[in-house]
Design a protein around this nucleic acid. Structure first.
Lengths: 340, 340
DNA sequence: AAGGCAAACGCATACGTATTCAGCGCTGCT
DNA sequence: AGCAGCGCTGAATACGTATGCGTTTGCCTT
């Protein structure tokens, strides 16, 4: 009504008795603007509620001060919840972006779609953060496209895909070792592993490797019959644990490749009348929020999602500013609760 | 290297032997462009990897095809996880945005900050989705600002704040009734409620009202000593349940105002040696993902976050297109698991 | 044969900001 | 007095797209 259109820098200029470029300079903090002039301009701007039009600004500057966060997962039954570990990371990513003056575009894609072309190309974002697991062949192809297009991006995950951009990940081998050390220190000797250990799931495979290495160093030969494949959902963990029980190969501990798997395994053990941690110790991985809510609360290997989110954002911003790409491994940490 | 700069519509125009405006029209699907011409332009565009610059496009069109999602919560101990119910909604909001051709900017704010000025004013978003609980006085002031600035927004929450924009919420009264009906049908007669029931927490208050109304209709006078305040965190539910037990007022069921509270209450009951559901039935509210993972799995009143997210996005898009504002109440649903 | 009409397209320009370059007034130095 | 240099500002323009309006062409009408 009073002001039908949003004010522009020209309006401010007119009111302040200066030219539009001076307004732009003043508001961006250019030191060539006289201090008094800047004060006057800023006062007028806040008074009439002027805000820089970020579309025009981005167009002119060639950058948008926006990052895009892409969740993707391949076998996506519609309505499926997003991986809780990634969701937990979201909070820290959001906070870090805010601190650094970036906005965050969020998107949820199927790995098989064309997500890799949709953001930086359209100039809506200066760089991409990729969070997702899935078919590693397809993933590799997408990453190659991104590298070819010189898109700025960082990725969370296994450090497997070398040369394909910057990766930040958890030291999964170390995580596996921590789990094994802990279980051994509790007197357990027949350690089972639930989770896919093939090269299609490098994170899980590394966790398993570390887990086995530590056992070997302690003079224990890991029994391959105690490794059961499972995907990172509760149901899959439940099934795998049932199968483990059905196999009748004795075991006194389970290291689950993720907390969701561990939760499913817990359920299977309890339904089978096993006491946790009396008969069987259980250790999970991730430390998702639900891990402390299980009964009994789950001992797990925590990935520090606060540090992870911050590292992703800061590394990406560095990358955009043409700083060197690097690979960063974050150390996991053992959280002892009541299942071990 | 080969193409140092990203291609523009002028490049496409030159290659196709037409003018730039024709390229723009062709790619936007303008029917005045000849079918053959469009095909040719589209072929060239995909071939050289052209993408519309959304900054320029947004600037010219005066809209960004982007929505902004704002989480906020007031007492924000740094590092706190975001409310899991809102997080669960995120997936459906993302999917709906994608379906409707919108991008989503996500942000995490403190209620006390200036979030309400930061998005639509800068033209980065066409509208706002607000998710958050908190101090209702402060909230009201913020909403008034938004209305005054004619910002497009929708809000999830209690329908309390009438006239302040469009609100979508769960029918909390009905949810309370469902909980009471269910517990009564299980033969329970001494029903407790854990959660703040003051007007500062309209959602909880409404749940409590519906809960009491149904009891009254069944000829049962709700005992005010069986209502204990609690905020929506696990710890608070734990404390409240302990207090309830300490009061020595007999009860055979607990309706918790949220699942997090219910999870805390479960823990308190089990530590006190009470059997669930043998001695005490427990019903939660929200149906967060963790609800099915408790032991025993939690009976709860589900808010359909898929429907909620879709409703929020679609209503906001309607609002942007100047369709009438409305208030929508979504029905909750009873999910019977093992705690009742 | 002349006028009318619709389809298809080009010209010019606007969106609001940021930056380059030039200009102005002034000080200080030779 | 003349000139370099500095501090500050304005004029002009570029960023890439979308759109109002006018123009061309071919075809149909009477």
């Amino acid at each position: 009504m009073a002001s039908p259109d949003k004010p522009t820098s020209f309006d401010i200029a007119a009111l302040a008795g200066v030219s539009q470029p001076t307004v732009s300079r003043a508001l961006r903090g250019d030191p060539t603007v006289n201090e008094g002039t800047r004060k006057r301009i800023e006062a007028i701007a806040t008074q009439i509620g002027y805000k820089v039009d970020k579309n025009a600004s981005s167009l002119r500057r060639g950058q948008s001060s926006t990052l895009a966060l892409l969740f993707f997962e391949d076998p996506l039954p519609d309505g499926t919840a997003i991986n809780p570990f990634f969701l937990a990371m979201l909070g820290s990513i959001l906070r870090t972006c805010a601190k650094r003056g970036y906005d965050l575009l969020t998107s949820f894609q199927q790995l098989s779609s064309d997500w890799h072309k949709d953001y930086e190309d359209t100039r809506k974002a200066d760089g991409l953060i990729l969070l997702g697991y899935g078919d590693y062949e397809l993933y590799r192809a997408r990453l190659q496209d991104l590298v070819r297009q010189r898109t700025h991006f960082v990725r969370w995950g296994s450090v497997e895909l070398d040369g394909l951009g910057t990766t930040i990940g958890c030291d999964n081998m170390l995580g596996g070792r921590l789990a094994a050390e802990h279980l051994l220190s509790r007197g357990r000797r027949r350690l089972a592993f639930i989770g896919e250990a093939s090269s299609h799931y490098p994170e899980f495979r590394d966790r398993y490797h570390g887990f086995c290495d530590t056992q070997l160093e302690a003079g224990i030969e890991p029994d391959p019959r105690l490794q059961i494949g499972a995907l990172s959902i509760e149901e899959s963990g439940f099934e795998a644990a049932r199968q483990l029980l059905a196999n009748k190969v004795p075991f006194d501990a389970i290291f689950a490749a993720s907390d969701l798997i561990a939760i499913g395994a817990l359920r299977a053990l309890q339904e089978a009348g096993k006491s946790v941690p009396g008969d069987v110790s259980v250790v999970g991985f991730d430390d998702i929020p639900a891990a402390s809510l299980t009964h009994p609360p789950l001992t797990t290997i925590a990935q520090d999602y606060n540090a992870a989110g911050e590292a992703l954002v800061d590394t990406l911003i560095g990358e955009i500013g043409n700083h060197s790409a690097e690979i960063r491994l974050l150390p996991p940490r053992l959280i002892v609760r009541k299942t071990s």
